[in-house]
């Protein structure tokens, strides 16, 4: 569905992405893992067109359409919704208005109503706060609103940037459950996460990004069993491993 080939993205003179290729098949959840500053958000921004004149090199293709050079407002109309990291709500708008903004490109009133009901089903707390100024929501509620607003576009592909950031553990579980449900209802998802453990539980496939390059990619299950991943991202020390030294060296390179 989405095919990224060998892209290079830079911020002015600073190169952030160095020849990344990845693929998101229709109907799947693909996760993109990596430490702070690895370039995960940059890849999402490159896809959604937020970085003008980027990528420098390489191509991005979505269902046969080349995205290179398109504006964000064109790309969202193709069915790609980018949910940015952080709580990028419209603070002065009500919760309801925020949700409506999510459906800005849609003309099918009934479909919008259905999705609104679906979102409120996923996040009942939003339903109790529809006429409240979004800026007065709690951090977690704002995060739900951001995801709910993304769903209102009824995207074919959803780019989710750290949806679990700043949520209480119980809510983190719930968010991932919701992501899974959204996917089962037909939305393809590219998921960027710090919480690698949860991400690998819901995802089908994963990529590991470091300093702007893909260093590893595999099925989610295989990744979560991979020693290096366990060590660096899942926080599970593998005692007495014969490859201990090698792993140590790798770890140093990664950080």
């Amino acid at each position: 569905m989405l095919r990224i080939s060998n892209i290079e993205t830079s911020y002015g003179p600073i190169r952030a992405i160095n020849g990344v290729s990845l693929e998101v098949p229709e109907g799947r959840i693909v996760t993109l893992l990596g430490g702070n500053g690895a370039g995960k958000s940059t890849i999402l921004k490159t896809i959604s067109g937020l970085l003008e004149d980027q990528p420098d090199k390489g191509t991005i293709e979505f269902m046969g359409t080349r995205l290179n050079g398109l504006d964000p407002e064109q790309i969202v109309r193709l069915g790609i919704t980018h949910v940015q990291e952080g709580r990028t709500i419209f603070e002065e708008l009500t919760v309801e208005e925020n949700l409506l903004m999510g459906a800005y490109v849609r003309r099918d009133v009934h479909g919008v109503q259905r999705d609104r009901a679906r979102v409120l089903g996923h996040f009942p707390v939003l339903g109790q706060r529809l006429n409240q100024r979004a800026g007065t929501l709690s951090g977690g509620e704002q995060q739900m609103l951001v995801i709910g607003r993304g769903l209102m576009a009824h995207p074919r592909l959803m780019l989710l940037d750290e949806p679990s950031l700043g949520l209480a553990p119980a809510m983190v579980k719930e968010i991932f459950q919701i992501i899974k449900t959204i996917n089962e209802e037909g939305t393809t998802i590219l998921l960027v996460e710090q919480n690698a453990r949860m991400a690998l539980q819901v995802a089908h496939y994963g990529y590991l990004l470091e300093a702007g390059r893909i260093v590893l990619s595999d099925d989610a299950r295989a990744l979560s069993e991979n020693e290096d991943v366990r060590d660096a991202y899942l926080g599970i020390a593998v005692e007495g491993s014969p490859k201990g030294f090698k792993r140590y060296k790798k770890k140093k390179r990664w950080r």
Binding site: S48, L50, D71, P72, E73, V76, R77, T81, H82, Q84, T88, F90, E91, E92, L93, E97, L100, M101, G102, Y104, V105, R149, A153
Partner: peptide, 24 residues
């Protein structure tokens, strides 16, 4: 109105508003 709400959204966060599809 849809455009009226979009105007307010743009004034608060133009980047996010573009991601929603507003033609800023």
């Amino acid at each position: 109105t849809r455009v009226g709400v979009a105007m307010r959204a743009i004034s608060q966060n133009p980047t996010t508003a573009r991601l929603m599809g507003t033609r800023t």
